[in-house]
Simulated assay, not measured.
Amino acid sequence: MLSVNVLDAATRLAAQCFLTAVPLLFVFGSFAPQGVRNQLLASVRAVFGLKGAADHQLEQVYQSGTQSLQETTGIIGSLMVVLSATAVSRAMQRLCKRAWQVPKGGTKVAPWRWFVWIAVWLAVLVLQAPLRGGFGVGLWLGAPLTLLCQTALWWWSQHLLLAGAVRWPPLLPGAVLTALAVTALSVSAQFYMPAALNRTLAEYGSLGPVFTLLSWLIVVCAAVAVSITVGAVLAQETPLAHRLGTLPARRDAEAVQGGGS
């Protein structure tokens, strides 16, 4: 936990999400078809439980028309936002490497992985509304589907960003813990975020929700950092290491040194 520096990693990741991922949602909405834009709007509402003034402002932005949104973002601005959005991927990759103690030269630099990670996360975000509703069946199906989707997503994310430096089975504990933490925070956001956003919007204007959203992102990113790190530690502990086929490089090195002495 000390080597990962959870608080620092969470703060950096949250800042990158706010500065790059949030603008990317507006760029994506400006060029996406109307149906996809409506689905994105519904999913953002589902994630944050938006209602009242905050929901009205979000709807005004996304329903202002494709031409208006494209003129606001611009082609050059859109390209810059897309390129800068890889900062989130790089921050997440550094977190995974620290958690698994992968050396800096342990994986090849492959920028395509950063773009693929962002594209898949956008696709998953668009599907959040129907997924949480169990595709019309109800919450009793939506809740386990969301948890299953989050587990698969974080399992795949670690493997992709680590470039295969760690095998699939050892990555599963971190994926399960992260999925549980993110799902729990997502459910709790339904009770806290709407009132907090509307209150800060009424008191401080459009600048108010900035602090609320950033604070929530820091909490989520801290939960992600802790979960991935704890998952990596558990996967290298004796009870799970044998089952998952984990090869803890640090312990192997210590064993070799001990044998040589």
Rank of each mutant, 00 (worst) to 15 (best):
T72P: 02
A143Y: 14
I75Q: 02
A53W: 14
W154P: 02
A15S: 15
A9D: 06
L162Q: 06
G142K: 04
A253I: 07
L25V: 02
S64C: 00
A181E: 01
P209T: 02
V61I: 01
D252E: 12
A85Y: 02
G259I: 11
G231N: 04
C149S: 12
A9M: 04
D55T: 01
G136E: 01
G164E: 09
G164V: 09
L139E: 13
G208M: 05
V120F: 08
G208C: 04
P239C: 02
L127V: 09
A10E: 03
Q150F: 14
V210P: 04
W114T: 08
L172R: 00
Q128D: 08
Q57C: 04
C149M: 13
V187M: 10
V182F: 11
F115C: 00
P209H: 07
R167W: 12
I76S: 04
Q67H: 12
R113W: 01
A99L: 11
T238Q: 15
R132Q: 14
Y62C: 00
W112Y: 13
L125D: 05
K97H: 12
P130E: 09
V226N: 02
A85D: 01
L79M: 00
T73E: 01
D8G: 14
A196F: 05
L161P: 09
V102D: 05
V6T: 10
F18Y: 13
I228C: 04
I218T: 12
D8W: 10
L125T: 10
T73G: 00
Q70H: 00
G138E: 05
D55L: 03
K104E: 12
S206Q: 11
T73I: 05
P209Q: 05
L244Q: 09
G259P: 05
R243F: 15
I218C: 10
T11S: 12
Q60T: 04
A42P: 06
V137F: 13
V116R: 05
A255C: 09
M92F: 12
C17T: 15
T212E: 06
L7E: 04
N198I: 03
A189L: 06
I218W: 13
L2A: 13
Q257F: 13
G52K: 04
R132P: 05
E203S: 10
A15Y: 11
Q236I: 13
S68R: 12
L131K: 08
F115P: 03
P103S: 10
R132G: 14
V6F: 06
G245Q: 10
V61F: 02
P144H: 11
T66A: 11
L19D: 12
L139I: 10
L41C: 01
T238F: 15
D8Q: 14
A123H: 09
I118Y: 01
A189M: 09
S188M: 07
I76R: 03
Q236N: 15
A119Y: 03
G174E: 10
E254H: 05
Q63F: 00
C17G: 15
G245N: 07
A196V: 06
T107E: 06
P144C: 08
V36S: 07
W117N: 02
K97V: 08
A14D: 03
A53Q: 15
A110W: 02
G208I: 04
T73H: 03
L148I: 11
A189T: 11
P170K: 08
L171A: 03
L131H: 03
A222G: 07
P209S: 00
P23T: 06
R113M: 00
A42Y: 02
